[in-house]
């Protein structure tokens, strides 16, 4: 966007001033957009909720991506960068809650419900298999091979 110029300017300025000691230690090649996006994909900016950082068009998100590029240039790893963002902005920047503290619940509850569901379905099976009316013999035994054709044909007759 048109706002990029000042950002580039400031980034360059700051690269020179603020980060020059760090920068000097591990000056790698400038990371490509793809490398930046690979990290950004996994982050969510609080300004535009529920939009991944790599595709978010706002100015704030553009700045975040520039920061990721900066950190990558400094030789930070993906995990270090993610941790940095968590420290700065809280766990909400991660695409899923981390496995710690209260957030355990998000991973525990669905399996519990699913297990309960399996149990209920299992019980339903058993309950339904118990004859409700012992006199009723539901399906007469047929030879399995012609079962299907018989069914279709029977239906055809019914629906004439």
């Amino acid at each position: 966007m048109k706002k990029t110029l000042p950002i580039l300017f400031f980034s360059a300025l700051l690269l020179l001033f603020v980060f020059s000691p760090v920068f000097a230690q591990s000056a790698g090649p400038t990371p490509s957009d793809d490398e930046v996006n690979a990290v950004a994909k996994q982050l969510f900016c609080p300004v535009c909720e529920n939009t991944p950082l790599d595709v978010c068009p706002t100015q704030a998100c553009a700045q975040w991506r520039d920061l990721i590029r900066l950190k990558l240039t400094e030789g930070w790893t993906e995990d270090q960068i993610k941790q940095y963002f968590v420290d700065q902005y809280g766990a909400r920047v991660l695409s899923a809650p981390p496995l710690e503290g209260f957030s355990w619940f998000i991973y525990i509850i669905p399996p519990i419900f699913l297990a309960a569901g399996v149990y209920i379905v299992f019980r339903a099976f058993r309950a339904m298999r118990k004859p409700v009316n012992a006199a009723v013999q539901e399906t007469p035994v047929q030879t399995p091979s012609d079962d299907y054709l018989r069914r279709v044909e029977e239906e055809l007759k019914q629906r004439k």
Binding site: P6, I7, C45
Partner: peptide, 10 residues
């Protein structure tokens, strides 16, 4: 609020 340090300093 929700800012990147380099730009904030700028």
């Amino acid at each position: 609020y929700v800012d990147t340090e380099p730009e904030a300093r700028g």
